[in-house]
């Protein structure tokens, strides 16, 4: 039996959805499953880890891990992987995972594939695929000379199973690495949004130039509030200064793959499509029937966003509340 080690992220005492997806994939492979969780409160997720089939948990319930410092995280994770020698290590392709895993991979002289959208584990092997060239094609990942196959999975691509009957989980404490630090996290400035980040969101409502001005984004926030979505934007809107760059979906913004993407007043420039064409269901609302976004859309609504959006929000409210 091989070992699969999952680096899990959690928030408010709960594993993030991406972590549940990875644990589900790991437990269904029949391998021994290990989990790593770092940060204050990690001890509180031990039960949840057990319910998702984790045999052994490495928990760093310690404020030294609260802020992401690449040096501290890389040292702690590399040490566990070196000692445990898993065949496969998984993490979500989030800001943290994408920053951390390549650094660890270089330390372990092993291969890493980020931003994967398909994953099957069989024995000590992984079959993973990932988008290439902004989603214009996909390719299979083949590991060579890699003692640990490190895979970063995009959230929302794999099913998250249900918690099962608890089993025993062996808990190891992760010591804080003693390092001569060259990286100092000085300050974390919290964003206004308490919503899920675009890269993790299951539903996204995005606005483009058709929204006319910054104030009109309220219509998108109203809709997002009702359906539990995160609000995104096209590059044109970010460049115009209506919304911050963190909200940009597309080539020089974020690559997203939600279950539902509602594009409002977005024409669908190739740079935007590059960032969202992996979405499962795409709704396009635009008054220009010839806008390229309609070629990528599942459902198209040719109309005025200012007229349609309030009605849509009201309809969803009727359905969901």
């Amino acid at each position: 039996m091989s070992i699969v080690t999952v680096f899990t992220e959690f928030t408010n005492g709960q594993l993030k959805k991406g972590a549940l997806e990875l644990l589900t994939a790991a437990r269904s492979s029949g391998n021994k499953v290990q989990a790593i969780a770092l940060g204050s409160g990690a001890g509180r997720i031990a039960d949840q880890l057990a319910q998702y089939g984790v045999d052994e948990a490495f928990l760093g319930d310690n404020a030294a891990f609260d802020d992401y410092n690449p040096e501290i995280f890389a040292a702690a994770v590399a040490q566990i992987l070196e000692a445990q020698k898993p065949a496969i290590a998984l993490a979500s392709s989030t800001m943290l995972g994408r920053d951390l895993f390549p650094r660890v991979a270089a330390r372990l002289k092993t291969g890493v594939a980020s931003d994967c959208t398909e994953l099957t584990i069989s024995g000590d092997g992984v079959q993973a695929r990932r988008p290439m060239y902004a989603g214009k094609c996909t390719a299979a990942v083949v590991f060579e000379n890699s003692p640990v196959k490190m895979v970063l999975m995009r959230p929302n691509q794999l099913p998250a199973g249900t918690p099962e009957g608890k089993k025993n989980v062996v808990v190891h404490q992760v010591p804080t690495p003693t390092l001569d630090l060259k990286t100092l996290v000085k300050q974390i400035v919290k964003g206004a949004s308490e919503k899920l980040d675009l890269t993790e969101a299951n539903v996204i409502v995005a606005g483009g130039r058709g929204m006319r001005d910054a104030a009109s984004f309220k219509l998108l926030h109203d809709l997002a509030e009702v359906i539990g979505a995160t609000v995104g934007a096209s590059r044109a809107v970010v460049d115009a200064g209506w919304v911050p760059h963190g909200m940009q979906v597309g080539q020089t913004g974020k690559t997203v793959a939600p279950t539902l993407y509602i594009a409002c007043g977005i024409s669908g420039a190739i740079q935007h499509l590059a960032g969202m064409s992996g979405s499962k269901v795409i709704v396009a609302i635009n008054k220009d029937a010839s806008a390229p976004i309609f070629q990528k859309a599942t459902y198209g609504l040719v109309g005025d966003v200012f007229e349609v959006l309030p009605l849509l929000t009201a309809e969803f409210k009727k359905l969901l509340h």
Binding site: Y68, T183, Q187, I188, E194, P244, G246
Partner: peptide, 17 residues
């Protein structure tokens, strides 16, 4: 000193030697 944009519009300010 580097400012990095992380999730949900949160910014991290880190100092590198």
């Amino acid at each position: 000193t580097a400012e990095r944009e992380v999730e949900g519009g949160t910014r991290e300010i880190v100092q590198l030697t």
